[in-house]
Design a protein around this nucleic acid. Sequence first.
DNA 1: ATCAAAACATAGCCATTGCTATAACATTAC
DNA 2: GTAATGTTATAGCAATGGCTATGTTTTGAT
Lengths: 151, 151
Amino acid sequence: MKVKKAAAIPESTLVDADTHVESFRQTRHNRRTELVEDYVELIADLIADRGEARQVDIAQRLGVAQPTVAKMLKRLAADGLIQQRPYRGVFLTEEGSSLAGKSRERHQIVENFLCALGISPEIARVDAEGIEHHVSLETLNAFRDFLKQRN
Amino acid sequence: MKVKKAAAIPESTLVDADTHVESFRQTRHNRRTELVEDYVELIADLIADRGEARQVDIAQRLGVAQPTVAKMLKRLAADGLIQQRPYRGVFLTEEGSSLAGKSRERHQIVENFLCALGISPEIARVDAEGIEHHVSLETLNAFRDFLKQRN
DNA sequence: ATCAAAACATAGCCATTGCTATAACATTAC
DNA sequence: GTAATGTTATAGCAATGGCTATGTTTTGAT
Ligand SMILES: [Mn+2]
Ligand SMILES: [Mn+2]
Ligand SMILES: [Mn+2]
Ligand SMILES: [Mn+2]
């Protein structure tokens, strides 16, 4: 059954290199923004729920140590996403609030979508926490449409 | 319109803290394994497609520099996932091959699922590259079922 | 057999995200 | 007003994942 691997169609499962690299690049970029999105979203939720977002509460919710949060908050402040008022919690700037809103909405859609597929709420919650950051606008819209069509 | 915030039902959008933290923990764990999965999957693909997987090819496909790959390969070798044969490429161990197989299958299902939802192949490819690492077994099965039902 | 090209290794740098231990500071209760 | 408590800040460490620059080694063509 020897066949010379001539010009013919290769059963190459391998996509074009430039195309491939672009996916990886985009994914690396998403990874860099993940944490920021989760932070502002969580801050917004805490403020909505209890009027304030303290470092300690953020740390507790994220499951990390307080200095980890302190460092991150410094970065968020430097990036103009939050404003820190010591002993009074952190507050979102316009920009931070906007990012939080978008993140929260996207998160919600992803989680609802997974539930609509029949996945258990607990698993949907966990998976959505990671998936959300890699969902493009087009995919988000597809999820939304799916939810609408079977509401 | 002052209302004292009595015992009543809080319109708290906030889930239980322990539950919340578990999602974040799982997501952080997934993030730590992402790269490893992509590497072994890519190595398997390269070997399947062209008989060998060299550092330079891996670097080119991932869009990173060669020393970045060299460092990572050392780690994969230390973890027993690959075996390096200088100037002849890297090869997967049993364990590496198994992980690659699982990763590839999951990746394929996620990507096909997105396409089945009507998302364009280019976007589906990019999104799947990131999403795949955060898809639990339960969610993967739901994706599979969805594909089966409308094949 | 020689030698240029390709592949790989290594050193040293940086940013990010985590940690512990400890200090400093505000708030609040008394 | 003081002291205890709670909150934030800081220092110092480690692992990870990038990079550039520069060797070293192997391969393969002549
Ligand atoms: Mn989120
Ligand atoms: Mn998240
Ligand atoms: Mn993959
Ligand atoms: Mn991937």
